[in-house]
Write a protein that binds this DNA or RNA. Structure first.
Length: 287
DNA sequence: CAGTGAATAT
DNA sequence: TATATTCACT
């Protein structure tokens, strides 16, 4: 039975996000508002029926200003009072697009956490995705559960309905490989072998909070690239990388507002360019 | 805080 | 339309 351990691990490893998956996405697009402000949009998108601030894929324009002043100029708190306010938390972020890859990460996290620890917070932490908030995960987690449930109920018997007429709730999930069947089995008796304790992931919260409290300005931190929907997860494997926050570079920017664009910290520790994946993803020791 | 269902926004 | 996010309740 011990062999199984390595087995599942290998498998898991295999499913891990590949290098192509994770990397090149920190290309934070220009904020939609900014883009609009600059009046830059697709040349041949001759069709502005609704002039809303839609986030579209800004052309490959170089993005010199790393000043991600989120275009969201909501209403900053004024008046007030506040001696130490953290306005950044109030920013409304754009809709998060759950790309298959992102979902995969989610699934992986859940799978490894085990049904027991698979709670939004833990998942979120284990995913180590920047900009992901508990709400995001919670919402998605629920949908995911429903999806599993539905699948289970329908897969019995009837003919062949592998995944054809599923309700609309699954397109995303359908593209994502479900590790095993860690469905909801209320079985307090036998636990699946959890080789790894998620404790490592738990402690970081405090650190993170502490860091934030210390005065971590969110000027360019809590943001995930608004990725345009690419969308073609049909049977294709990956289509788009996404946000992965892993290394928090100690960028101390104090005093002079040098908007020196961060040197792309998106580099994960991926493996060599060819060959197997030796990904060291999970233990998110830093955060 | 976490889970669910409905409403809402995009 | 579909999907994500938010809210009220638990």
């Amino acid at each position: 039975m011990r062999e199984d351990d390595s087995n599942w691990f290998s498998k898991w490893e295999q499913e891990l996000p590949s290098p192509e998956d994770l990397m090149p996405i920190t290309q934070t697009l220009i904020t939609p508002d900014l883009a609009i402000a600059f009046d830059i949009r697709s040349p041949h998108t001759h069709h502005p029926p609704s002039l809303h601030h839609h986030q579209q894929q800004p052309p490959p324009i170089s993005t010199p200003s790393s000043q991600p002043n989120s275009g969201e100029f909501d209403s900053p708190e004024l008046g007030g009072g506040g001696a130490g306010d953290e306005p950044a938390r109030t920013l409304k972020r754009p809709r998060l697009v759950w790309t298959p890859q992102l979902h995969k990460r989610f699934v992986d996290a859940v799978a490894h956490l085990g049904i027991k620890n698979a709670v939004p917070k833990t998942i979120m932490q284990l995913m180590s995705v920047d900009g992901l908030t508990r709400e995001n995960v919670a919402s998605h987690l629920q949908k995911y559960r429903l999806y599993l449930k539905r699948m289970q109920g329908l897969s019995s018997g009837s003919g062949g309905n592998g995944s054809g007429g599923d309700p609309a709730t699954d397109h995303l999930f359908a593209s994502s490989p479900v590790p095993a069947h860690f469905l909801h089995q209320g079985r307090p008796n036998s636990e699946h072998y959890l080789p790894y304790v998620p404790v490592a992931a738990l402690q970081q919260q405090q650190q993170m909070a502490a860091a934030a409290a210390a005065g971590h300005h969110p000027q360019l931190q809590p943001r995930y690239g608004h990725v345009g929907h690419f969308g073609s997860p049909r049977n294709g494997q990956f289509e788009h990388p996404f946000l992965n926050r892993q290394s928090q570079q100690p960028i101390h920017r104090v005093g002079t507002p040098i908007h020196n664009s961060v040197p792309s910290s998106y580099v994960d520790d991926l493996e060599s360019a060819n060959g197997r994946k030796v990904l060291t993803l999970f233990p998110t020791g830093d955060d």
